[in-house]
């Protein structure tokens, strides 16, 4: 089973995204911020191939997380999608430059997530 991770400081949002991904056939890990995510990725969540990450979070925000992950060879092939309330073009560009593969603006629907995953070529 392919592994995915959802990173968001809102428990409800994590649950929603985790369920969507689970329905799409992923084993899903969760983290409440970037720092926690890195720790989990180095432990139980080894082999994750898809990460959905929020932008605004305490400890380590989504952008810093994306930068940190992209700087680490081990996570080279991981698909990263930001899922955030931030909707400025400049922020999208920053996220792309940092190494995000896709970007979803909240609020989203299940179709939106599916269509984006299809674009990333990771819809199973």
């Amino acid at each position: 089973m392919l592994k995915a991770m959802v990173i968001d400081d809102s428990r409800a949002m994590r649950m929603i995204l985790a369920r969507t991904l689970a329905e799409l056939g992923y084993e899903v890990f969760q983290a409440a911020n970037g720092k926690e995510a890195i720790e989990t990725l180095e432990g139980a969540a080894e082999g994750v191939s898809l990460i959905l990450v929020d932008w605004n979070m305490p400890e380590m925000n989504g952008l810093s997380f994306v930068r940190k992950l992209r700087a680490d060879q081990r996570f080279h092939g991981v698909k990263l999608m930001m899922v955030t309330t931030e909707t400025q073009v400049e922020q999208m560009m920053t996220a792309l430059e940092a190494g995000a593969n896709e970007y979803v603006m909240k609020p989203f629907t299940r179709e939106i997530i599916e269509d984006k995953l299809r674009l990333l070529g990771v819809l199973q």
């Binding site: 400025q88 999208m92 629907t109 269509d115």
Partner: peptide
């Protein structure tokens, strides 16, 4: 609408070809 550009459109195209 935001919900329409969220669907199926690569964000790189959104940034390049749209004005908010």
């Amino acid at each position: 609408l935001q919900i329409e550009v969220n669907r199926g459109l690569p964000v790189s195209y959104l940034v390049k070809y749209f004005n908010r």
